[in-house]
Simulated assay, not measured.
Amino acid sequence: MKSRRDFIKKLSVGAGILPMTFSFAPYQKHQYISDIQDGPVLKVAIMGLGSYGNRVAEAMKDCKRAKVTGVISGTPSKIKDWQAKYNIPDKNCYNYENFDAIKNNPDIDAVYIITPNALHHGQCLRVAAAGKHVICEKPMSINAKEGKEMVDACKKAGVHLLIGYRMHFEANTLEVIRLRNAGEFGTVKFFQGLSGFKIGDPNQWRLNKELAGGGAMMDIGIYSINGARYMVGEEPIWVTAQEVKTDPIKFKEGVDETITFQLGFPSGVVASCLSTYAFSYLDKFFLVGEKGFAEMQPSTGYGPIKSWTHKGRLDLPHVTHQTTQMDQMAAIIFDGKKPIVPVDGEEGLKDMKIIDAIFQAVKSGDKVALKL
Score class of each variant (00 low, 15 high):
Cys154Ile: 04
Thr300Trp: 04
Glu290Lys: 14
Lys29Ile: 09
Ala216Gln: 02
Pro248Ile: 00
Lys155Asp: 15
Gly14Asn: 12
Phe7Gln: 11
Lys80Phe: 07
Gly303Ser: 04
His121Asp: 09
Asn181His: 04
Ala216Cys: 15
Ser280Glu: 10
Tyr86Ala: 10
Gly16His: 09
Leu194Thr: 01
Phe293Tyr: 14
Lys284Met: 11
Met218Gly: 13
Arg313Asn: 15
Met218His: 04
Met218Asp: 07
Ile222Val: 10
Lys61Met: 05
Thr276Ile: 06
Ile108Pro: 11
Gln37Asp: 13
Glu235Asp: 13
Ile355Trp: 06
Lys10Cys: 12
Gln242Phe: 07
Lys148Met: 14
Gly336Met: 03
Tyr94Phe: 11
Val255Gly: 12
Leu125Ser: 06
Ile332Met: 13
Lys145Arg: 14
Ala57Lys: 03
Glu243His: 07
Gln262Ala: 13
Ala271Cys: 08
Tyr96Leu: 14
Pro139Tyr: 02
Ser77Pro: 12
Arg55Tyr: 05
Asn203Val: 00
Ile177Ala: 06
Met47Arg: 02
Thr300Tyr: 14
Ala331Phe: 07
Phe197Leu: 02
Asn54Tyr: 04
Asp344Ile: 07
Val269Trp: 01
Gln123Cys: 07
Cys93Glu: 06
Pro19Thr: 05
Glu295Cys: 13
Asp219Glu: 11
Asp366Val: 01
Asp283Met: 01
Ile135Cys: 13
Leu370Arg: 02
Asp356Phe: 00
Ser12Thr: 11
Gly147Asn: 08
Pro266Cys: 05
Asp247His: 10
Pro342Gln: 00
Leu179Gly: 05
Phe24Val: 12
Ala271Val: 04
Ala110Met: 07
Glu295Pro: 09
Asp344Leu: 03
Tyr96Cys: 09
Gly292Phe: 04
Val232Gly: 03
Ser280Phe: 00
